[in-house]
């Protein structure tokens, strides 16, 4: 069977509050740390939803929209850059699993 790439996989996820234009991010990342002192930038490859990306200049960017609340980045980042929380049910994003 055809293997799915990550965007196709994330397309199957039901996110909350998708109609809201403004959402309150449940994870805050101090990318200053990623871009100055972090030796591994591990979140950019271990995140199963690819919320952490590196641009052409090697800078780390974070977006919370695709986050599936797995928790991986909270452990993978040993540099203190990731402030992790669960999303607010009303004004946050996050997931509702159909199967789980």
């Amino acid at each position: 069977m055809k293997l799915l790439n990550l965007p196709e996989r994330l397309g199957l996820v039901s996110y909350r509050n998708q109609a809201r234009s403004e959402i309150k991010p449940h994870i805050v990342v101090d990318t200053e740390i990623c871009n100055t002192t972090c030796p591994h930038k591990a979140t950019t490859y271990v995140c199963p939803a690819n919320c952490y990306t590196i641009d052409d200049h090697g800078k780390v960017h974070f977006q919370v929209e695709d986050c599936i609340e797995c928790g991986t980045c909270m452990y993978a980042c040993d540099q203190g850059a990731v402030s992790w929380n669960y999303p607010d049910p009303e004004i946050g994003r996050g997931v509702t699993w159909n199967f789980g």
């Binding site: 069977m1 797995c70 909270m74």
Partner: peptide, 21 residues
């Protein structure tokens, strides 16, 4: 994509992708 796994799961439709620590 492993040949044995590919045989086992062929023709299915992925309906959810998830992850958790």
């Amino acid at each position: 994509a492993h040949p044995v796994i590919a045989d086992t799961i062929r023709d299915g439709e992925v309906i959810e992708y998830s992850a958790h620590v």
